[in-house]
Amino acid sequence: MIIIQVAGFLGSGKTTLMIRLGKALAEQGRRAVIIVNEVGEVGVDGDLLASQGLQALELTEGCICCSLSGTLQNTLRMVKTELSPDFVLIEPTGLALPGRINGIIRTSLVEPERVVTVALVDAFRAEDLARETRTFFLRQMESADLVALNKVDLVQGEALDRAEALVRELCPDARVVRLSARTGEGMNELAGLMGLP
């Protein structure tokens, strides 16, 4: 079982990427379960993922990196023993800290074959986020295996170069890929960097 965590700020395109990844894995005959977390009491993304024919478990009313950390561990154990998927895709809330979630996975006793953490950055708002929530923005990227600069369908040219330069300035060691989860541009490169078939 391989665990893929797709983290990123509110509105960075996590659910769109989840749908694309989930469908791609299903087309290859891989069994994928999505664990989606919403900070509010009403889950929207679980409904949306289910409407796309994907198997999604929704955890609401808290964040799996803090208040729902135990719930995440129980869910991971249940998924492993009862569903035995090839992949577990985790979509945390846009306010979660992915480094903490990796720690929670490590102590969950599910012993995944591999954990891949992708930090999704909204290229359109990257400069605003760095200015207004710099510490938080940085903490969401710093523990990722790779940073996907999303929404390149909305941002081109110098603005996109500035967004990438900003990511590289904040996370000098990060592997960065340009992506449009919406159109699929950059998906092959992302899959390659994630070590997916």
């Binding site: 509110l10 919403e38 900070v39 509010g40 009491e41 009403v42 889950g43 929207v44 964040c63 990196c65 803090c66 208040s67 809330t93 306010l95 979660a96 800290l97 903490r100 929530t133 938080f136």
Partner: peptide, 12 residues
């Protein structure tokens, strides 16, 4: 709490 850390509010 990460929500508090981000100084964010939420509802649905």
């Amino acid at each position: 709490d990460s929500k508090r850390l981000a100084e964010a509010g939420s509802s649905g």
